[in-house]
Write a protein that binds this DNA or RNA. Structure first.
Length: 124
RNA sequence: GGAGUCAGCCAAGACAAUCGCUGCUUGCGUAAGCAAGGGGAGGAAAGUCCGGGCUCCAUAGGGCAGAGUGCCAGGUAACGCCUGGGCGGCGUGAGCCGACGACUAGUGCAACAGAGAGCAGACCGCCGAUGGCCCGCUUGCGGGAACAGGUAAGGGUGAAAGGGUGCGGUAAGAGCGCACCGCGCAACUGGUAACAGUUUGUGGCACGGUAAACUCCACUCGGAGCAAGACCAAAUAGGGAUCCAUGGGGUGGCCCGCCUCGGAUCCGGGUAGGUUGCUUGAGGUUGCAGGCGACUGCAGUCCUAGACGAAUGAUUGUCCUCGACAGAACCCGGCUUAGCGGCUGACUCCGCCU
């Protein structure tokens, strides 16, 4: 029953981790509201980081909500993303979506990203 | 019943299931962990506008500068907050609002309009007593015009025109005189004080407005902030001490000499990172006592988020009145701003019934 857990190991924790992914990420998935960047990490599990600027979502409440939904969908999809560090960047416009639309969109992006990760792994 | 005033309380709608996050307690385990139980955003957590605690730095004492506050008294750790009182204003009222010290210390400012705006001012008007002019005559009187001049009653301008009303007075007027009202000053009385007074005396009586204008007066203020500060501490560069070795490399033909390079241990320093600060506090609550009240004292009782790329959530189902503003980041006391509603109590005005 622990397979959908979200412990600290599955997160990006330090500025170094973040910078590492931002530098030339080989795999991307993009929509109007989000950008996902991924990079292999030599681990048996994925790690996630979420970025939302104050410019994107003015209120702290909105930023928290988006982070929670991103994490929730990631938690349920994590097994298809093993071995990659991932950063999700929210872009202006996300605040217009409700919870349901956000989940739909994110699930679509996760599928896209995992497919590309698999392709990248087998190619190299 | 309607309209309203004040005070207090509640508020990510309620319930269930599943999957998660994070502290705490207990049990098991060497440990990593596992299991169970229980806790997990706000009234504004916000703006960061004031005031403190705490921490480090600075500091003999005093002054200047600068900043802030500004009716009085009290409360408080402190305040620009709160309470009570005074004064002024608004409201029929319950109540509400007010940077509300000083322009008889000095300096400055006042657009436009207006004749005149600060030891005022004659545009229209009124008068023309007095002096001059014209006419008449009884030669000192009558009449006339309005030149000098007088006049702040009336009109007009303005945010503001140098007390108001009435009577007297006068050529016309005028605090010029008087009465009442108002005002200034002093005394007295009440009040801790601000201040008040159907009190007494006195002055014919302006001393205009403006200090979020300079300024004056009184009082307050050292600086930086939890990324404060404390501790542990990889790596790397360099430093110190002790011991070991008496060596390697360069220069040179070689020796001396000169330059340069060690090994081990420890110390100091402190980057990444980690730990701490971190939640028990000027705390909540109950009772008693003091106080008009803010609040205070004593006794009992309770523990109520503590994260750090940053938890407090997601999905589904059912129901309803269909859910605002909004997310802790060291901690408190305030202020301000945002905002869908619900509940309770006290009071006021209007209408109706008895």
């Amino acid at each position: 029953m622990t397979q959908y857990a979200y412990p600290r190991e599955l997160r990006l924790l330090t500025p170094v981790d973040f910078q590492n992914v931002f530098n030339n990420p080989p795999v991307k998935a993009v929509s109007r509201e989000f950008t996902m960047l991924a990079k292999p990490n030599d681990l048996a599990y994925p790690r996630l980081g979420v970025t939302i600027s104050k410019k994107t979502a003015k209120r702290a409440v909105d930023r928290n909500k988006i982070k929670r939904i991103v994490r929730e969908t990631y938690r349920l999809k994590q097994h298809k993303l093993s071995g990659f560090d991932i950063i999700v960047i929210a872009k202006p416009g996300v605040t217009k979506l409700d919870n349901h639309a956000l989940s739909e969109l994110l699930n679509y992006l996760w599928r896209k990203l995992s497919k590309r990760c698999v392709q990248y792994s087998s190619a190299s």
